[in-house]
Computed example of a mutant assay.
Amino acid sequence: MVDLDNFYISLFGNPVSHSLSPVVHKIFSKQINIKYFYKTVLTPKNCLNIFLKKFFKEKYNLGANITLPYKKKIIQHIDILTNRAKICGSVNTLKKIEDNVLLGDNTDGIGIIADLKRLNFLKEKNNILLIGAGGAAYGIVPNLISKNNNIYIYNRTFYKAKILSEKFNKFGNIFYLKNKTIKNYNFDLIINATSSGVFNQVPDIPKSIISENSYCYDLCFKKNGRITPFLKWCKKHGSNYLQDGIGMLVCQAAHSCFLWFKKFPNIKKTIIKLKNKIKI
């Protein structure tokens, strides 16, 4: 293992105690033979920029991840954005490319596409319901649209769904739904991109949209390997195809790792190891 220098990566967000990213990156570190340490940083409101500046002042603090609720807010504090970060207007990965210069990227979109393909959940010309209109949704919408699907956005705050859909409608078929009309649609794939699972809650959607043929995917996951509240609810109302966000976590993290170190970890082996660890 490379040990000339010890690199440090941090995850900034609120909350962060639930995150499995430190476990994932510990596995990655061994796989790519580079010694780096990954920790979570609980970041209070209005303290993000202060925390980031302090962190990146240190020589071996190479990069960072950003999670809720800061994926969109972080944009104003970044010097250079990758094209995919510019398109989605959301950032989950930072890299210090020289003193006082930060590169911002978003690996959520390529992460979820990779995992949906791995699971055979994603097909072309599907009707996809995306629940939520926060930073995570912004990160994955461009990639979902690129697969020639119809994307429907539903959010408890209606105007946020409208803003998100209008931002990306030039790239493909994307629409926003109101509470009264969502029950009139049939969906092939339903993705929960809200943080409801962190708080043991379920998004407010009608049970009539769930059927035995519905593919249900939750970006959230449980540390103990149990089913998330959203997926439990989907199963209760008939879905036979359920998957949490463990695979997406690993896939997007692998692309972050590649940005930092130019080495790509083994996704399949990491998912197996991670699942074994969280069931203990």
Rank of each mutant, 00 (worst) to 15 (best):
K59A: 06
A64G: 05
N92D: 11
I131W: 00
D105R: 13
N106V: 12
R118P: 00
D108C: 12
K117F: 10
Y60H: 13
L122W: 07
N65H: 05
E58D: 11
K86M: 11
L94S: 09
I131T: 00
L102W: 12
D99Y: 14
L103K: 12
A114E: 14
Y138S: 00
S90F: 09
G139R: 02
A133L: 00
H77N: 13
Q76A: 14
R118A: 06
H77I: 08
Y70C: 01
L68Q: 05
L68V: 15
K73E: 15
D79S: 15
I78A: 06
D105I: 13
L119N: 05
G139K: 04
Y60F: 13
K96S: 10
N65K: 06
I74S: 05
R84M: 12
I131R: 00
K95L: 15
E58Q: 14
T82A: 10
L81V: 12
R118F: 11
V101Y: 14
P69I: 02
I74W: 05
L94W: 12
Y138F: 10
N65F: 06
L62N: 04
K96G: 09
A137V: 01
L122I: 12
Y60E: 07
N126A: 08
R84D: 15
N106F: 14
E98S: 15
I97V: 15
K73P: 00
G109L: 13
K96F: 11
G111D: 08
I87C: 06
I140E: 00
A64Q: 06
I80H: 11
N120E: 11
T107F: 08
L62K: 12
L102G: 12
I131V: 09
K123W: 02
D99M: 07
K86I: 14
G109P: 09
I78F: 09
E124K: 15
K59S: 10
T82N: 11
I112E: 01
K123F: 11
P69A: 03
I66D: 01
F121C: 01
N65T: 04
G63I: 03
N120F: 07
P69G: 02
D79C: 09
K72T: 13
G89S: 10
L103D: 11
I78S: 03
I87F: 02
E124L: 06
V141E: 00
Y60Q: 09
N120I: 03
D115A: 04
A137I: 02
I74Y: 05
H77P: 00
G132P: 00
L68T: 10
I113R: 07
H77Y: 15
G89D: 08
V91Y: 08
L122D: 01
A133F: 01
Y138A: 00
D79K: 14
A137M: 02
I112Q: 06
P69N: 02
N127Y: 08
N127T: 04
F121Y: 15
A133Y: 01
T82V: 11
V141I: 15
N100A: 13
P69C: 05
I80D: 10
I78Q: 05
C88L: 11
A136N: 05
S90Y: 11
G89H: 09
